[in-house]
């Protein structure tokens, strides 16, 4: 429990440190604040931050090194991260198991037989 708690607190601290330079950025409003409803409240910022951490650890669990996973998550938009968090297994990926191929072939052959000969 304490480990979980420490993890949470340190994540929050990192978040605060990250937010610091943006809030005092010479009074300019950055472009991403203007684009497509990017204006998040504080809760939205935290949710996105945690979603990024989730996706990163999911990628690592699927065989990506931690450095590489970090770079890959960094290239995603907030919206994409939100779509992926907890959903990686449900997303289409450009490949399937050989058993699925074999099964697909069997079903198709059966379907052809069914439509032509019955």
């Amino acid at each position: 429990m304490s480990r979980q708690f420490m993890k949470f607190v340190s994540r929050l601290l990192v978040l605060c440190m990250l937010a610091l330079p943006f809030s005092s950025h010479a009074g300019m409003i950055p472009t991403d604040q203007i684009a497509a409803a990017q204006q998040q409240d504080a809760r939205g910022v935290v949710t996105t931050y945690l979603a990024r951490a989730d996706v990163q650890s999911e990628l690592q669990a699927l065989g990506i090194s931690s450095d590489s996973a970090r770079d890959r998550v960094a290239a995603m938009t907030d919206e994409e991260v939100g779509r992926l968090a907890g959903q990686i297994q449900a997303q289409p990926a450009g490949a399937a198991s050989p058993w699925a191929v074999a099964a697909a072939v069997i079903v198709i052959v059966w379907a052809l037989w069914y439509f032509y000969y019955r």
Binding site: L62, L84, A93, A95
Partner: peptide, 22 residues
């Protein structure tokens, strides 16, 4: 290195978009 996901033996759509950006 930027899109392939060994655990899924494939590449996700989101990562295809993200890699173009990278």
């Amino acid at each position: 290195e930027q899109v392939y996901l060994p655990g899924r033996e494939g590449s996700l759509q989101v990562e295809m978009l993200a890699a173009a950006r990278r």
